[in-house]
């Protein structure tokens, strides 16, 4: 609950304050958002499974975002930035889909 509360508070703060993102970080934003979505769906599924743990949620969220940004950064340095971005999006997209399917099974029992 604490985690959810904190996230909601952060979103509200972000909407109110409208902070500007430094230009150097711009290329990593799409990947970071997708990674955040993945962590959110994972947390939701864990809640429905009855095994939600706020520490695991925060750690997975943080590591997902940082790791995704790191991979894109690495790809940029190696000259394969767009390909690696695609790879990250594919993997995270598959995970989001599977988690969403599990959530659907929980909610609709089908």
């Amino acid at each position: 609950m604490i985690a959810l509360l904190g996230l909601a508070l952060g979103v509200v703060l972000g909407l109110v304050l409208q902070p500007t993102v430094p230009t150097e970080l711009q290329p990593y934003l799409p990947i970071a958002v997708v990674a955040a979505l993945d962590a959110l769906f994972g947390g939701l599924r864990a809640t429905l499974d009855g095994i939600f743990d706020d520490r695991v949620f925060v750690t997975s969220f943080l590591s997902n975002v940082v790791l995704a940004a790191l991979i894109v950064f690495l790809g940029d340095q190696l000259g394969v930035g767009s390909q690696l971005s695609t790879a990250v999006v594919v993997v995270l997209g598959i995970r989001i889909f599977s988690n969403a399917a599990a959530i659907r099974r929980h909610v609709f029992k089908a």
Binding site: I2, A3, L4, L5, G6, L7, A8, L9, G10, V11, L13, G14, L15, L17, Q18, P19, T20, V21, Q26, L29, P30, A32, V33, A36, D54, R55, V58, F61, L62, V65
Partner: peptide
């Protein structure tokens, strides 16, 4: 300390993700 830490981190994460989404929605 763990509760406080989780709260602080989630607030931070929510803020960052919202900022990222907002930045992505406006043209460069």
């Amino acid at each position: 300390t763990r509760t406080v830490g989780v709260l602080v981190l989630t607030v931070l994460l929510g803020l960052v993700v919202t900022a990222a989404t907002l930045a992505l929605r406006q043209p460069s």
